[in-house]
Design a protein around this nucleic acid. Structure first.
Lengths: 331, 331
DNA sequence: CTGAAAGCGCTTACAG
DNA sequence: CTGAAAGCGCTTACAG
């Protein structure tokens, strides 16, 4: 059973491939009604599915985009991925996803693979603090947009970000207003810009309140398991604390678990604040008070920006989203 | 800045494109050391990235597979997706993912799109109870494997499944042994085979124990929000219950939330059992007692089976995984 | 209103 | 050990 091609249907109808191609691509201003109808009918009859690889080769456009992210299992990234696929598919793009586990080498490998597959653009959530891979993207002249995490010179690349520093300040204001003084902060991996920004928000607020003490800062890794381990350490250190502000929800989830297990009442004995507003954060009990990033919107904006950028390669834009305080039960 | 092609590097080295192609594809048994070295050097120098679309057109192989699933945001599916991408990428395949929201039309649309992109195979997690789309796959002679959810005639297609009926029986035995008698069961959407199988496990166990009462069965939808709504209804119905067995963890999460909010102590006042052993189920407090499907392993097996099937289109195999009881804190 | 022909960038027999 | 040529299935000027 051979695949049916343009040629087959051209022959059957008795026209040239060019004509068939034109009607299939809606460039049929110059094709008579009758031949168009015949062509369309035959396409149905033979169940013709165009070979878009061949199409890509001649048009130099694949109608697929790539998304490079640390781990699709992480609900932050899967929400971004969903948003991206939603707008991509409504603009007739498919999306290839790639898990890097924050490894620079994997990122590089995937970038090259995607370029070789002629993807029309790439959405890049980098976990490696390095601009080498950005250079590869640039030198290959492929449209791309960064999301959430950026490296040097953000002004020179398309990007979608959240105002992390401000977000943490928002959360801190709330904590401070509630009378919390001894507030610990658990950072993300410190090679990531977003970790630095969030920590900066904490430092700003604590300094302003004359409460800053660097012993209250703990370096985490943005994972739930990391949140568990670090919280155990914090408890062991015997520092008396009013609240713990986790640099993201994943760590806060781990933290809450340890706290409850150790007999702490939340928020009576200790308050907990997260960051991200991942879906699960409202599924747990007590529901997590957190700072929300508009994750889905950010993904959507990224994909829209990418597609604009594919259509007009000169675009170079940065979009900043506002974080918001989400008051629930843990403070 | 034009892209560099095979021709460019052939010209620069002073050989034919054929020769370059051969060394790049490791079919260079017949190429002299010296020309091979020269070629490899030039490839590096010019930063040559092969155009794999052109390659696909002549080899009729794209080295990409498609995965069609209801929603990548659902952690069950994102875990499967991660497993698939892991084995795919280690075998040099990329993966395109498609969200269908359980809509048959979307499934069909994506299948056709993927076929037109010449994907080498498709992993299909269908949410629609219909074999029409399976027929399209078959008639196009494209390798595919079903995961988790199947339709008619499973013997005729590649598939990876979990023994759902047995899994629920496992959970029921545990509940029954703990002396629970008034056990409610919340099903998934009843048009899915997996929902029927899980319900059947419940019916088997209850009937055997002489405890079956159809008033204890509630039809859910596998979502957390659905779990919330349904649990409220169950409480309102005033049926006295020892335990609720939810057809999947997502619904159990919603259920636990409602129960706690309404003042029930788990497991003292009422026990809760889930199904899936999704990652979050151990992040909540109390940790969910559930029946685990080996999700990651199932994804990995599916992708391995798909690749085997791509290499040898005659393969037709069904793999069944054993569920396991995971005892934690909610029973 | 329609067709012939070149081209996209590869791979693969085949010939020498 | 290497090259010339055909072919994969489309699209796109160009000509008429």
């Amino acid at each position: 059973m051979k695949k049916v091609t343009l040629k087959d249907i051209a022959e059957k109808v008795g026209v040239s491939k060019a004509t068939v191609s034109m009607v299939l691509n809606n460039k049929d201003i110059n094709v008579s009604e009758s031949t168009r109808d015949k062509i369309l009918k035959t396409v149905k009859e033979l169940n013709y599915i165009p070979n878009s690889v061949a199409r890509s080769l001649s048009t130099n456009k694949s109608n697929t985009i790539g998304i490079i992210l640390p781990d699709i299992e992480n609900s932050f990234f899967s929400e971004v991925a969903r948003a991206i696929e939603d707008v991509a598919s409504s603009s007739n793009y498919n999306v290839i996803f790639c898990n890097t586990d924050n490894k620079k080498e994997k990122e590089e490998q995937y970038i090259k693979l995607l370029i070789s597959k002629l993807v029309d653009g790439i959405i890049f959530l980098t976990g490696a603090y390095s601009s080498d891979n950005i250079k590869i993207l640039k030198s290959n002249n492929i449209p791309f947009v960064l999301v959430d995490r950026y490296v040097e010179n953000p002004k020179e690349v398309n990007g979608v970000y959240c105002l992390n520093e401000k977000g943490v300040e928002l959360g801190m204001d709330y904590l401070l207003n509630k009378g919390k003084k001894r507030i610990a902060f658990v950072t993300g991996p410190m090679n990531l810009n977003i970790s630095k920004q969030r920590l900066q928000g904490y430092i700003n607020a604590m300094t302003k309140a004359n409460l800053y003490n660097e012993d209250f800062v703990f370096e985490g890794d943005f994972t739930t398991d990391g949140g568990i381990d670090l919280t155990k350490e914090i408890l062991k250190s015997n520092i008396k604390l009013d609240a713990i502000f986790y640099g993201n929800d994943a760590m806060a989830l781990g933290g809450i678990k340890v706290l409850i297990r150790e007999g702490y009442k939340i928020p009576e004995d200790i308050s907990v604040m997260g960051f991200d507003n991942v879906k699960i954060s409202s599924f747990i009990q007590p529901e997590l008070t957190t700072v929300s990033q508009p994750i889905y919107d950010m993904g959507r904006a990224a994909c829209t920006l990418l597609i604009d950028s594919i259509d007009d390669k000169t675009i170079n834009k940065q979009i900043y989203f506002q974080p918001e305080l989400v008051i629930r039960d843990t403070v």
